[in-house]
Simulated assay, not measured.
Amino acid sequence: MTTYTASSLIWLGDYEQARHHAERATEAHDATPIGKRSLSREAIAHLDLGIALAFLGSAKEAVTLGLQALSSPRLVAFVQARAADLNTALAIQHPGTSHAAEFESALAATQVGAAP
């Protein structure tokens, strides 16, 4: 449930509370045995935390979390969509920075959001 709360708070623009809930979600995923984890929900938790951090001014940390999510073996459509949201957040909050460019490049390399 913590992951859904973080996503909802991002949509509402409450990035500090979203950060808090996304951190709790990533901690919960980390504490779950690997065979029992939902890899797609884990990737979403990292992306939500990255989005919140991007809006709170921490581009480097946001990109690190985004890259971690992009390395997930479960890059399903809704993970791809959240990765695109992080890319947008970085472009808005940190335009022209090496961090934004790095994530945009990694996102393009995975063909996330590419037309069918």
Rank of each mutant, 00 (worst) to 15 (best):
H29R: 09
H29M: 12
E23H: 08
L39C: 01
A6T: 00
S38D: 15
Y15Q: 07
R19D: 08
A25D: 12
L9M: 08
G35C: 13
I10R: 01
A25G: 08
E42K: 08
L39P: 07
A28F: 01
T26N: 15
R41D: 14
E23M: 02
D30L: 08
I10M: 10
D14C: 03
A31N: 07
E42S: 02
R41C: 00
H29D: 15
T32F: 03
R41V: 04
A22D: 12
Y15L: 04
T26M: 15
L12P: 00
P33L: 02
A22K: 00
H20P: 02
R37H: 09
L39H: 13
A28L: 11
T32A: 08
Y15A: 04
W11M: 10
T5D: 10
T3F: 05
I34A: 14
E16W: 00
R41E: 15
E42T: 07
E42G: 11
G35T: 13
Y15V: 03
R24T: 00
Y4T: 12
E42L: 01
E16M: 05
W11F: 04
L12I: 11
H29E: 15
K36F: 06
W11R: 10
K36Y: 07
A43E: 06
R19Q: 12
I10V: 10
W11N: 09
G35R: 09
T32G: 02
D30P: 00
L9V: 05
E42Q: 01
H21M: 06
A43V: 06
I10P: 03
K36N: 07
Q17A: 11
L39Q: 13
E42V: 03
T32N: 03
Y15S: 05
A22C: 09
L9D: 06
Y4E: 15
A18T: 13
R19Y: 02
T3R: 00
H29W: 12
S40L: 06
H29S: 15
A6V: 08
I10T: 09
T32W: 02
Y15K: 01
L39R: 07
R37C: 11
A18W: 04
W11I: 10
E27T: 07
I34P: 03
T32E: 14
A31H: 01
L12K: 09
A25Q: 07
L9E: 06
G13L: 12
R19K: 05
T26A: 13
H21Y: 14
S7A: 15
I10C: 03
E42A: 05
A31I: 07
L12D: 15
T3Y: 04
Y4N: 13
L9W: 01
H21A: 11
L39Y: 09
R24H: 02
E42W: 05
A28P: 06
D30A: 13
I10Y: 02
S40Q: 05
T26S: 15
L12H: 03
A31M: 08
Q17K: 14
W11H: 09
L39G: 10
